[in-house]
Design a binder for these strands. Sequence first.
DNA 1: CTGTTAGCGCTTTCAA
DNA 2: TTGAAAGCGCTAACAG
Lengths: 356, 356
Amino acid sequence: MSRMAGEGATGRRTWHERATRDDVAARAGVSSATVSYVVNNGPRPVAPETRARVLAAIAELGYHPDNIARSLRVRQTHVLGLVLPDSANLFFAELARRLELRADELGYSLLLCNSQEDVEREATHLAALRDQRVDGIILVPADAPDGSVPSVLDGIPVVALDRAPPDWTGDSVRTDARQGGALVARHLLGLGHRRIGFIHGPLRLAHARERLEGALLVLREAAVQARPEWSRPSSFDFAGGWEAAQALLSQPDHPTALCCSNDAMAIGALAALHARGHRVPSDMSVTGFDDVPLATYAIPALTTVAQPFDAMAATALATLLERVGEVNAGGPGLPPRQQTLAIGLVVRGSTGPARA
Amino acid sequence: MSRMAGEGATGRRTWHERATRDDVAARAGVSSATVSYVVNNGPRPVAPETRARVLAAIAELGYHPDNIARSLRVRQTHVLGLVLPDSANLFFAELARRLELRADELGYSLLLCNSQEDVEREATHLAALRDQRVDGIILVPADAPDGSVPSVLDGIPVVALDRAPPDWTGDSVRTDARQGGALVARHLLGLGHRRIGFIHGPLRLAHARERLEGALLVLREAAVQARPEWSRPSSFDFAGGWEAAQALLSQPDHPTALCCSNDAMAIGALAALHARGHRVPSDMSVTGFDDVPLATYAIPALTTVAQPFDAMAATALATLLERVGEVNAGGPGLPPRQQTLAIGLVVRGSTGPARA
DNA sequence: CTGTTAGCGCTTTCAA
DNA sequence: TTGAAAGCGCTAACAG
């Protein structure tokens, strides 16, 4: 296909007037129903000769079916909502991209909404998506101080991705945060680290908590003590990692390794370490979480826990569309599924043996 | 608002049955038109007492207007399409986020599409958006070997953002690439650099070319020669910067400064320099372009050209919505505008005096 | 101030 | 194998 022509060859109407299905029908000398059957390849067969006439009329008029009208009629929009805290955040950006790609493969479009980690905005967006009659919603819930989110909004299926509020009872797709934390901790212990610090996300968030807990459990089993003053909460971004690292390092006594709850924080921490003249990994080891594309290009390259982006996207969408199917079939089907995906450690240059 | 309740207090229908406007009308004992006027605050006034009854009925039934039906009727969806090469790319991710925020403020939603720098996919997406009856489209055109894109798709306004194909005649919003290139070059000259290398994007892309040309012009004016073997094309991502830097450095003779066409490439180049044991900026200065949030946290922090993200988003949307207005008013209005936004240099730690 | 009704573009049942 | 027509939920004449 060459770059889409600006004008059809023939019959294009004037400014902003589109050919409608009736126009096609008239021109082809058939009924509008027949046009429908041709356009949709069904549900009824059409004589080859008739079909050809219709196709010709369609081409001549530059006709394109109106999805809005179709949606109204069939009560399906083939549009999904994607609500997440910050689509520019390294992790969510990558996740959103995979979701968009997969959704596209499945014949769906994505309406993008940023909640900015704000529950009110999130609610507003969900309501807007409901009014927009999206077929389903993928939601990375905002960090809520309190309550939960409905798993079903006026009959619209929602699946929670990456995070799920404590009392979430609907479908969810997450990765094994505890396992991730444990992998990192074991890796560091194996390198001889006994003084390990943590820069973790807000502990209200289950996955931030679990990443930490997974690591702490491993330390405990190894009889290594985790000093509370080496644990700092921070926001899930560069600035958070930077600030927390600064704070940790301005203490008299340092850890020899720093576990960050995500890659962005780790990048921020690396920058802070560099600014203070610490060498990574010789002075201090640093780990991330997520394995975003940038991780490979951090200085030094980041040891981190790899999230299965494609699996997350595919699983979330598959689950969601299953629900959409159920809704269309009328009535609730299988019970909600809380799926947890496995996760793996990627060792790179940001971790090394503990100093003697 | 507390976290949106799952069930309305009263009258919620069974699974997936929504209250319609007629239900509300019946319950309130008014006509459906009146409900419309209440919901939309117009276009006709409604007696306070009637309005109250309607509002009550709406609440009791948990009624929410159907935007699809509304869109069909008013021929406006309040949805815009956003088509860009890669929504996870640092620059586009940031741009998309600002666009979404601004669009939201203006009462529009964004349908996100990744073209993956592929013209075919782009065309498919544009067609899908047309069928979806979006009110307008913001397009960052894919790097096309040949032709152009229609500025109007079946009457749907399109504004090109960040890039515009050579023969683009529609509206566009860009930043002053030449100026950006010049700023960087002058900065490096001022630091005493005379041996300057370039890692630039595909030169088919006007803005990649212009960033380079802007810099070369300044060099020429300063009677500094740009050696062709120090110029390398690469893709606009980490890997591109990495590879190009590796290639440049494996030559016998090096530049002392490296201008990259965007921040991602610069980050990749920094990683490559680090891997090869070069110090930045003492051995080599590096510059980026865009000033994405990450630039501050690069090691060392990146000297770069700051793109006015908010202005780009706001201008693109304002322009687009102006066109949408014109279309609704029927007929073409003002001639297309090619807007160019100013741009500024941000000096950070990745540039320093040339080695003696 | 409010009710009635046509119709947006499409799908699909019912008839032929 | 095809046509006619109802109706998805909404808005906006037109008519009181």
